[in-house]
Structure formats: structure tokens, C-alpha cells
Design a binder for these strands. Structure first.
Lengths: 240, 240
DNA sequence: GGCGCATCATATGTATACACCAGTGGTGGC
DNA sequence: GCCACCACTGGTGTATACATATGATGCGCC
């Protein structure tokens, strides 16, 4: 675990009050998404407990939840580690999200209240602004918010919860396999186009929008055979 | 928690050695599926610990996992209870499984090794025999095994894991909402037909088989408006 | 000099003690 | 007679102590 991350966590802790397992889950998720905790990073229970100022009981619950979200790898009698999905799992995760989010977009088309549509529009606008300002963290935040809004306001809550999970997992592998030197994974117009089709209620177009969006996104990744190098690094490199 | 169930659990414990959280998860899952633990049943940590001969630590981990599987309901500072999905969630769960399993069947068509195909054939045969012998528990076991084989041997492990979860959730609501007086939810020929299409590699037919199978299954349920009575019973009835 | 084994440090697995919270029943006042 | 309040009990939330497994290290033997 990097020291910089510990500093940041501590800063946020002082602001708030008591720490619960949910707080730890959120913090670790964020850190993994931002690659402040790279794959393979060891997450010992005592260390995490010291960082967050809680005992192992709380940490253990958080780690169990993170394991059920496929964020960390928890094996018996071994230290929990940040998971490192391989390229196969990455492709399969994208395929799963393509299926679920495509269906969900089609189901949701024409059903959203105007308040939600306005929220999506706002996020899409601010995503573009953040992109133009080269503020990648903000851009990602707004982009994720759009998909989460879709998941939360879909008529099928079961599929919605599944999509929430898949958004997290795809975000992690995007951060992992983003092509080197590529500043942003912004796809100009995709979200605004989806918004218009959600408004007009064109279910088939919504599904196509999502499928095309995810295909393009996966196309920006580097899923070539040289991933074996990454794998080696994360396995042999230890905690650097 | 019923006493009969405790007896049965104890019997199985004596046979085996030490109990882990995974054992508890499996036992509770089975008991919920068999409706030995009806919806709303209270599951206090200390009581479960006594039943299984372990301390609260292990029980807590098991309950957390069961909550992430949507089998039990775990709220802060309150006893865990067996979840009771309403009719809306039931329909949405079936819709989700229809989507996921349909896609998975199509993906898997023509890819299964003969060993797996033979296992499916064996299960389908034994399911029919169990149905003819009116041995419903065995029939359910074989039926579930077929779908689990599909989930485990599909080319997409991510979707496969999602299907495994959905099989559990649909099985629970089937037990819950099965039409009164209906002895079995057996659909003659469905599994054998799917098997032949998996063999021949007809992806479209496989998807249709699954979708038709699940639609028929949901049709056997009693999802009418009188579910409010069931809901009342489970809420007001307590643990009677 | 290299390989194998004992030993130790580190971290998890489990049990338990104490604090806190929630629902419940009884009691007192109005 | 009814409502509000309070003490009590059952149960979870958290911390901690002890038992155990695992990986590393270094010594000794071949």
C-alpha cells in the first residue's frame, strides 16, 4: 500500500466521524479505480485497520464485501490482494455488460421522468466540459454517473443492480488496460445520442447506442498478447 | 428457526469435521430452497452459532455472504431474516435470468465437450425418472444440476457466475410462489430438447429453448394480486 | 556451492468480552 | 381508560486475545 494513499485517506477521516465497513469499501474501490492501489497490492487486515483507525473486525467485513464485488482476491490463510483481471476476463466482462446494459437501455427507453433526463443531460454536458478542460478525473466521474443513473432508474431493479456491479468491474479493467499515452477514453457524442433516444423512447436505438459505445470503449484498450508482461510484473514485482 | 431443521443440521455436522462459513452458507441455502426456513424467519447470530457449533465470527461471515446472494436480509442492528422477494422482484428476476441464460445457451451451443453433454443427458434422464416416481426433491436436484452445468461450462465465466446467482434466486421464488396443489414444476421434454440443440450447435434454437422454458416455468407460478395475503402472513405471522 | 530443512516473522482464523442499540412490556401520570 | 415514559432483555457492533497457517530466511549437510 502506497504512503500517499494513506495520507489521503487520513485527511478524509479527520473530516468525518466514525468509520464503517461501507466507508472502507468505498475508499478502496475509489483507490483501485484511480490505480492508487495497483493490481496485486497486498491489503493486510491489521495495516488497513491502522490506516482507517478501526479494528480487524470491520476490515474483515469490508474485505469480504470487496471480494464479493470482485475487487480484491481473498484466499484462505493468505493476504487479500487487489485483483488483477486478465484479458479474457476483461473481454467477458465487457460482453456481459454489453448484454445487460443494452437490454436495460431498451427497457428504460421512454420511461424516465424528466428530472432524471435532465440529470443525465447535465452530466453529459459537464463530461464534455471536463474533457475539453483535460480534467480526466471529473470526466470519469460524470461518465460513470450517467451509467449509474440508467442502472438505478431502470424498471428492472434486479438487472439494475447487476449493471451497477458491471460498471465497477469494467471501469477497473479500463483503468488497467487503457492504451499507453491515451489521455482519455472520451467518445464524443455517445452519451448525448443515447440521451436523445432515451427521451424519444426508441428502444432499439438505445440498445444499439449502448452496444456501439461499449464496443468502441473496448476498442480503446490494449488487449494484445503482450498482457503477459503486465501479468508478470504484477506477480513478480511484489509490492514495489 | 424450526427445531426439525436444527436436528437435521446436527446430523450432518457429526458426520463431517470442522465447520466453515461456506458450510453454513450451503446449509442455509438448502434449507431456504426447501422452505424449511420460510421467508421472514429470524436468524440470530448466537443461535446459528450454537446450531453449527461455531462462534459468531464464522456465522457473521456466512450471513454477510448470504446477504450478498440476496438470500437473507441484513440490516444494521437488527437480526438477519430470510428474505421474502415480492412478485415484482420475482418477475424481474425471471426477466434477468431469461436474458442471461438465453445468451449463455446461445454462446455455449456446439462448444460443450462430450463428457459434459453426457452429464447433462444423464441428469435429464434421471430428472424424468424422479418425476415419474414422484420424487420431487431428487427431480429438483437434477434439474438444477443441468442449469448449473450450463453456467459452469459456458465460454463466458463472468456471465456464468451471474447465472449461478440467478438460478438460486429463481429457485427460491419458485418455491415461494408455486401454485398451491401443484405437485411439480416439471416441463416434459424441455431439457432433452435443449440438450439436442446444444449438441447440434443451433444457437438460436438454444436461446429459444431457454426463453420458452423459463416463460413456462413462470407461468406455473401464482403471481396474482393475492400475493398481498402472502406478504401479510409472512410479516404478521412472525416465526410461528 | 547448491539444495533441503528447521525456525521465525507475519498475517489470518476463531473465540470471547464489553458496549450499544432496538424492540417490548410494564407502570405511572393525565 | 389511554397515552407517554422508562427499565429490561435480546441481539448486534466492535475490539482484542489466542491459536494456527504460510512464506522467508538462514543454517547445515551433501
Amino acid at each position: 500500500m502506497s504512503n500517499a494513499w494513506q495520507q489521503e485517506v487520513l485527511a478524509e477521516i479527520k473530516a468525518g466521524g466514525r468509520i464503517s465497513d461501507g466507508d472502507i469499501v468505498r475508499q478502496v474501490r475509489r483507490a483501485v479505480l484511480a490505480q492508487r492501489l495497483p493490481p496485486g497490492t497486498r491489503l493486510p487486515e491489521v495495516t488497513l485497520g491502522e490506516v482507517f483507525g478501526v479494528s480487524r473486525s470491520v476490515v474483515r467485513k469490508a474485505l469480504t464485501r470487496l471480494a464479493s464485488e470482485y475487487v480484491v482476491d481473498q484466499r484462505p490463510n493468505q493476504v487479500a490482494r487487489v485483483r488483477s483481471p486478465d484479458v479474457d476476463e476483461t473481454r467477458q466482462t465487457f460482453a456481459a455488460r454489453r448484454l445487460v446494459e443494452g437490454e436495460l437501455a431498451a427497457l428504460t427507453a421512454g420511461t424516465l421522468p424528466s428530472t432524471v433526463l435532465l440529470q443525465i443531460e447535465d452530466r453529459a454536458d459537464r463530461e464534455r466540459e471536463a474533457f475539453l478542460a483535460s480534467d480526466e478525473p471529473s470526466r470519469i466521474e460524470h461518465s460513470l454517473a450517467i451509467h449509474h443513473l440508467l442502472a438505478e432508474h431502470s424498471p428492472n431493479r434486479v438487472l439494475g443492480a447487476m449493471l451497477t456491479d458491471l460498471i465497477l468491474r469494467t471501469s477497473i479493467v479500463i483503468a488497467l488496460y487503457k492504451r499507453q499515452g491515451l489521455g482519455s477514453c472520451y467518445l464524443e457524442g455517445d452519451h448525448h445520442r443515447l440521451l436523445e433516444h432515451l427521451r424519444s423512447g426508441d428502444a432499439a436505438a438505445c440498445r444499439e447506442d449502448i452496444e456501439h459505445h461499449l464496443d468502441s470503449l473496448m476498442g480503446l484498450l490494449d488487449l494484445g498478447p503482450r498482457d503477459s508482461r503486465i501479468d508478470l510484473k504484477s506477480i513478480l514485482g511484489g509490492e514495489g
